[in-house]
Design a protein around this nucleic acid. Structure first.
Lengths: 209, 209
DNA sequence: GTCTATAAACAGATAGAC
DNA sequence: GTCTATCTGTTTATAGAC
């Protein structure tokens, strides 16, 4: 086992097992086994179970930014262009949340941290959630010709994000009610079209009112 | 301690502690202490820790139906009436999720079960989520004069629910980004107005397209 | 139906050899 | 940097007195 390999393998195991079973339910023994490493390696590399959790949260922040954050083109002043960029981001995020590479592991990990109020929340907020939300607010403001950082716009963006997130969080309920066996490309397409339609409706109304 | 009191106290303790810390992180010792009961009482009444969890999930289903499900008026054929009833339900659900009596305990418990894939998911789905979703689809269909059980309508209702849920699930992120100290009546009012505005926008667009 | 006492397994952390 | 062996505390479950 290469020197740096053990560390990376343990982080991967942490994201996988913490996300699947939760932090408390995951023993350091199972983590070591999953990573093909020794039990003592966790204490050596991260100082303990808590340290590994924090390292997983940092890894998550980096991956998220890499997966979504690259869509940071220069702000255009045209409302129509802003709307199209908003739609592009929605498409990317839905795809990432529901089928992105490694999303089936990293997304559950993030949701666990959110639910448990773990150290991942802080890491996710400052490195990912806040900048992304701010960028969406900027685009929303351009698309509707309103103040981007107003309370109205910030809440509107959250209600947009909520729609995306629920299809991941409530997946068990959604698939059951829809009669789907799982979520494949066809289902992602349907969900995306629905959310984009909602987005258009919300933006149009904002333009009027 | 009265005979039935111990049982009820243990269920209350389960909802509280499981919701706050998660299932695995909660020991039967802390449950017994929280309930003012003996450790062995859990095994006696529920057969073990798992049994108590299941009893909590059943209790949750009953309370949820009681808290929201009563808004089951007779279906009116007027689109405008259906829209108003949809709005009424949204108002009730937002209030329940963010400030309802006992919601601060029962809602986290439900979210934990959802995240952990616990037995609460099954109980919640059949006794609560499915009937409520079906009723919302019925109202949506009437409000837009479309087939209530179509895939489009079912997804639309989920995207509506997602907006509601996110303001509870992502509370930590929302309050931070909004600069709120917490969620009180004023914040609930703002969130409600935003979601109702979105609902109007979605219904209007549906009517057109 | 409630309690004490205890069993048997498992947790995370660490000392020390290599 | 990786391993084995072990220490200390805690877990759930249960047997048996009352």
């Amino acid at each position: 086992m290469p020197p740096e390999g053990t560390r990376q393998a343990l982080i991967a195991a942490g994201i996988r097992l913490f996300g699947r079973q939760g932090y408390a339910a995951t023993s350091v023994r199972s983590l070591a086994q999953e990573a093909g490493a020794n039990i003592a390696a966790i204490a050596y590399h991260f100082g303990g179970k808590d340290g590994l959790r924090l390292a997983c949260a940092e890894e998550f922040g980096q991956r998220m930014v890499g997966a979504i954050g690259q869509a940071g083109g220069p702000p255009a002043n045209d409302p129509q262009v802003a709307r199209e960029e908003l739609k592009l981001i929605v498409r990317n995020v839905v795809r990432f949340l529901l089928s992105g590479p490694g999303a089936s592991e990293i997304v559950p990990f993030m949701l666990r941290e959110l639910a448990e109020g773990g150290p991942g929340v802080d890491a996710a907020y400052s490195s990912f959630a806040e900048p992304v939300h701010r960028r969406l607010c900027g685009l929303w403001g351009q698309a509707t010709a309103t103040e981007p950082e107003s309370e109205t716009v910030r809440l509107a963006v959250f209600s947009l994000i909520g729609q995306l997130m629920y299809f991941r969080i409530g997946q068990a309920i959604v698939t059951r009610r829809m009669g789907w066996a799982g979520i494949g490309p066809a289902e992602i397409d349907q969900i995306t079209r629905r959310i984009l339609s909602n987005l258009d409706a919300m933006l149009d109304r904002e333009g009027q009112g």
